[in-house]
């Protein structure tokens, strides 16, 4: 890497057998709880397994059943909607806040901490607080609406608003993450670029679009990949805030896996869902890499 005296590749170089010893404990745990479950899950997805009797091989039956499962289709749709409408605003707002906080403005340390605090708070705690905010009769949102003479909204109990309410909360929670990563990206942009632009008389807005955005491409790409993976796993806030309702308007893929697997004990069927989820995440990650790597290589160093 950075060391100029990096050892040249020699075929006769001694082998550090200690390497295997040092890697073993961590790697065994990693392998046992990542690849083994992945393989077992793949196997279960081809079986009918209710947890009490032995798994019975059923071929592709679980997958064909998935194709006709309207509830699962709804869950896939909801998960996509959730991802799209939480990632985009979160990235735009995160970038905006990062640019704002990058200057030497008084109060930026406090602001940075305040924006980031929701992210260190558990999803359960955050959900409890927002349940209270969204409470139909006593919650502060509806109290506010009433003082303005507006009709109260059944936030989490109305199929039209429930997903939006969950998304709003999730954006609030993970905004700090996007902001911090963008801040790190901004700090790696050489200031000479801005100086040159200033000499050329480019406006701040022009600088933002001509320097900041292109230079942040790897950062944006990284955030996009991570946010996609994370948002496709959305479960905790759904399970706590709405339990998938009302009228399945907020049920998601992981929520369906949880219900089918741990409440109906249809382990085989739920495993097939998990496999589909895995494939979707993989596909989106590959797609992101394809789009993100056009023209420039991500790992510059």
């Amino acid at each position: 890497m950075h060391t100029p005296n990096a050892r040249p590749k020699r075929s006769g170089a001694p082998i550090d057998y200690a390497g295997y010893v040092l890697i073993a404990p961590g790697y065994i745990v990693y392998f046992a709880f990542l690849f083994v479950p992945l393989l077992i899950g793949m196997y279960y997805s081809f079986t009918d397994y209710n947890f009490y009797a032995k798994p019975e091989f059923v071929g592709l039956h679980n997958y064909t059943r998935l194709l006709h499962d309207e509830l699962f289709g709804r869950a896939v749709y909801n998960t996509f909607i959730y991802s799209l409408f939480s990632i985009l605003p979160q990235m735009a707002l995160g970038l905006l806040l990062a640019v704002l906080l990058n200057g030497k403005i008084a109060g930026r340390v406090f602001a940075r901490a305040s924006i980031y605090v929701p992210n260190v708070t558990s999803m359960v705690a955050v959900s409890m607080i927002w349940l209270w905010i969204y409470d139909p009769s006593l919650g502060i949102l509806n109290r506010l609406l009433r003082t303005f003479g507006l009709d109260p909204v059944q936030w989490l109990y109305d199929p039209g608003t429930a997903m939006g309410a969950i998304i709003a909360m999730s954006i609030w929670k993970s905004l700090g993450y996007t902001m911090i990563v963008y801040l790190a990206g901004l700090q790696s942009i050489p200031s000479s670029l801005y100086e040159a632009a200033r000499v050329d008389g480019a406006s701040r807005i022009r600088q933002f679009f001509a320097i900041t955005i292109p230079m942040l491409k790897p950062t944006t790409f990284f955030i996009l990949v991570m946010s996609c993976i994370n948002s496709f796993m959305v479960f905790e806030q759904v399970n706590i805030l709405t339990n998938g309702g009302p009228l399945n308007s907020t049920t998601t893929i992981v929520h369906q896996i949880y219900l089918r697997g741990f409440q109906d004990f249809q382990m085989g069927y739920a495993s097939a869902m998990a496999m589909v989820l895995f494939l979707i995440t993989l596909l989106i990650t590959i797609l992101n890499f394809r789009l993100g790597n056009q023209g420039n290589d991500l790992d510059a160093d």
């Binding site: 479950p37 992945l38 899950g41 279960y44 796993m233 992981v254 998990a274 993989l282």
Partner: peptide, 24 residues
């Protein structure tokens, strides 16, 4: 090869393997 297999894990969130892990 081992290191590459470690990197793959970033793309396998625990939610996708929760059922087999639970059964294990």
């Amino acid at each position: 090869v081992l290191f590459f297999s470690v990197l793959i894990g970033i793309m396998v969130p625990p939610q996708t393997t929760m059922i087999p892990t639970f059964l294990m």
